[in-house]
């Protein structure tokens, strides 16, 4: 049980692909101008990560060391292509917005990194959990960054959510600041770098603060 808890906390916080491993920055920076784009790409990434992790773990005993990288590449490419087709068939409106970046999931090194570092050495259940929570951790950062950039950049939150959730979810769209002129920097790529920097700084701050309070608690029990 504790082993699974370790996997979950690694994916969501301690070893988060976006803030700690800094993997997959290309899609991370490109699609986070609004929450809906970020969430769409995040869900697609989770799907690919889970498929690739489970498959790699299933075949880990049959694939010899020499050919494991090409096999991983085949698995990931197939998973991405299938995700791409499924999106085109069932979420076409969203595909029009983030379609270009779905193909780029292939280049998201987080996926091959998890296949190589984790799934090729662990059981199917662990790999499934690892894929799911690494994906969730990545999506969480995507959505957080998307929300920051959307509020600062265009003064709205959850705009165009119906692209992802279907008609009837327009009520989610919030106008945070009325008659907002927009802050261009937040929408353009530099805004993504600055935003991600702030998020990483925030995470480190929390880690430090936790460490300090743990230390002071230790000192108190010692004295």
């Amino acid at each position: 049980m504790s082993q699974y808890r370790e996997i979950i906390s690694n994916g969501l916080w301690k070893n988060n692909p976006a803030t700690v491993q800094l993997l997959g920055l290309c899609p991370l920076l490109a699609v986070t101008s609004t929450v809906v784009n970020a969430l769409g790409l995040g869900l697609a990434t989770i799907l690919v990560l889970v498929i690739s992790n489970v498959t790699v773990s299933l075949i880990r005993d049959y694939v010899s060391n020499e050919i494991r990288i090409p096999v991983f590449v085949i698995v990931i490419a197939a998973a991405v292509t299938m995700t791409d087709m499924i999106m085109q068939a069932f979420f076409y409106d969203l595909y029009l917005v983030i379609g270009l970046f779905v193909a780029l999931i292939t280049t998201n090194c987080a996926i091959i990194a998890r296949a190589e570092a984790f799934a090729s050495k662990n059981s199917v259940t662990s790999s499934l959990l690892d894929g799911l929570f690494m994906g969730l951790g990545f999506t969480g950062i995507l959505v957080l960054l998307g929300a920051m950039r959307e509020i600062i950049g265009s003064g709205t939150l959850f705009a165009n959510m119906d692209l992802l959730l279907g008609a009837g979810s327009e009520w989610l769209s919030l106008t945070i600041i009325d008659n907002y002129e927009g802050f261009l920097l937040a929408i353009l790529p530099p805004g993504a770098f600055i935003g991600l920097g702030l998020i990483i700084a925030g995470k480190n701050l929390i880690d430090q603060w936790q460490k300090k309070s743990a230390e002071s608690a230790l000192q108190q029990t010692a004295t």
Partner: peptide
């Protein structure tokens, strides 16, 4: 290894083609 790699390539292609 070569046979194994070939099998994986065929399987993956078949899956994509089916979808």
């Amino acid at each position: 290894s070569a046979v194994l790699l070939g099998i994986f390539a065929i399987l993956a292609t078949a899956l994509v083609a089916f979808l």
